[in-house]
Amino acid sequence: MSLFRRSGPPAGAITITVDGRAVPACAGDTVATAMLAAGYDAIGAHVKSGRPSAPWCLIGVCFGCQCSIDGAPDAQACLVPARDGMVVETPQPLTDKEGKA
């Protein structure tokens, strides 16, 4: 179950793609709020620790929501307005030669 629910009037429905999966969103969302509303508690994995990473501030400060958006690998999801058809890829942990995070 999602951490959040929408309380406002229904806004225009759009769809973004997160790691290949279609995710419903609303016009006016940022990529980060769209993912929170769709039940993503975490936005990929922390590249160093390999632990799930999540937004802490939602104002562009903490980089907990950093991911790749439409090919820009360094986007902050909380600063990018969600648009229909947007392609999001969440970060995966850096691994060494043995495949360990």
């Binding site: 959040f4 929408r6 309380s7 609303c26 969302d29 940022t30 709020t33 929170l36 509303a37 939602l58």
Partner: peptide
């Protein structure tokens, strides 16, 4: 921020 941006509660 989530509330103001998207009405999330």
């Amino acid at each position: 921020s989530a509330y103001k941006q998207s009405g999330l509660v």
